[in-house]
Amino acid sequence: MELQGMPTEEMPIFGSTLKLMKFWSYLFVHNWRRYVAMIPYLLINVTQYVDIYLSTESLDFTIRNVYLTVLFTNTLVRGILLSLYRGHYEQFLELLKGYYLQLLNSTDKHIQELLAEATRLSHSIGRINLLMGTCTCIGFVTYPIFGSERVLPYGMHVPVIDKYASPYYEIFFVVQAIMAPMGCCMYIPYTNLVVTCTLFAILMCRVLQHKLRNLQLLPVSRVRQEIIWCIRYQVKLAGLVDAMNGLNTNLHLVELLCFGAMLCVLLFSLIIAQTIAQTIIVIGYMVMIFANSVVLYYVANELYFQSLYISIAAYESNWMDFDVETQKTLKFLIMRSQKPLAILVGGVYPMNLKMLQSLLNVIYSFFTLLRRIYG
């Protein structure tokens, strides 16, 4: 199947992710759409910080406003980085497209199955994330309806006029309701992009494992050439992961801090929620934020171990039947595989489930402290 002329955003493994980014002009095109979403979001985010500083509202709404402010900041950072480094992201996606087409045109049935499996998983995760984002947007709008006081979906400071007086309240409510899905289009597709790229790196690891485990099926004269191909493919894989870290590692650090702050605030909001409906909505927020982060950390954790399994696959290839030169070449590949590939946070710490567990322990400690102070 030759699809060399296929546009990058049409790669099946990405589903609708890149198409959404293209529509909002974060990638592939440069027009007014990104500013329609980002400039109002930036203005609202500034007013959110001012509103928190000047807030005289009840504690439950202040806590919720802190959560939404951090979430908006995180969303804005994603959109701004995509816009600033658009060229770097597009170059990276072109590189990934070349590797994708190479696997797509493979005649090996097992590789085709691995690619189809990775595509299905990417589509499923993307749809689930979009569904959770939609539910969260609905939660933004409906939460104030169940409150005991008149409040907006998310806090904002409006000088001079009373934002809770009609008709200003209704106007601001409608504007904020419209802005919620725009923010979702900045937040969720970026997560799906990172997850899909990580899934593709995992796919490349599994392709390498498959090639190495089947070395004994090749003619003796071809074994060493196949191992050399695997070494070169391993270099490409390491380069792909390095490129991913170069684009996203600092953002991963920011999001680690944001995730900790948001989850801690939501746990506290869960305690002080005034009605059952508010409790349900807060739980929905927690599920969305937690699931979003767990998926990222899970696939990064899987990449870490799948890269280590390459050396195990090489060892299981009946290497003792090869000639000395071929054994030396295979040993070189095994040595390279001893250093696992990792998605880094802040360019230092590997993103994995152990790190997520440590973060959750810290969050629970801060939550306990808040509960003792304000309980």
Results as ranks from 00 to 15, higher is better:
M38C: 13
A313D: 00
P153R: 05
Y190A: 01
K236M: 04
G284T: 08
D162A: 07
I188N: 03
M132A: 12
S83I: 11
V241K: 00
P189H: 00
Y100E: 02
S124V: 12
I39S: 04
R78Q: 02
K339N: 11
I145T: 10
P340F: 12
T17G: 00
T62S: 00
Y154T: 09
Y297C: 08
Y100F: 14
L199C: 07
V282L: 01
L215I: 03
F92Q: 11
V46P: 00
K339C: 05
Y304L: 15
Y298Q: 07
A180L: 04
Q327S: 12
V66A: 07
L217P: 04
N31Q: 15
L81F: 01
T119F: 04
V158M: 13
Q176N: 15
G126E: 07
G260W: 11
C230T: 09
P189K: 09
G98R: 11
L270I: 01
S122W: 02
Q274K: 15
L59S: 07
V287E: 06
Y315A: 12
V66N: 06
N318C: 09
M351C: 10
W319E: 11
A116M: 06
V295E: 01
L193E: 01
I312V: 10
Y298N: 13
V324M: 15
L20Y: 09
R86L: 02
N31S: 10
T75W: 00
L217N: 15
Y26P: 01
V241I: 15
T73W: 06
Y285N: 08
L266Y: 06
L215T: 05
L253Y: 15
L256N: 08
V46T: 12
L257M: 13
S221E: 15
L131V: 06
I52H: 09
N105M: 07
H123M: 11
I44A: 09
Q91H: 06
G126V: 06
E9R: 03
L251Y: 14
Y190N: 12
G98S: 14
H88Y: 02
I13R: 05
I202Q: 00
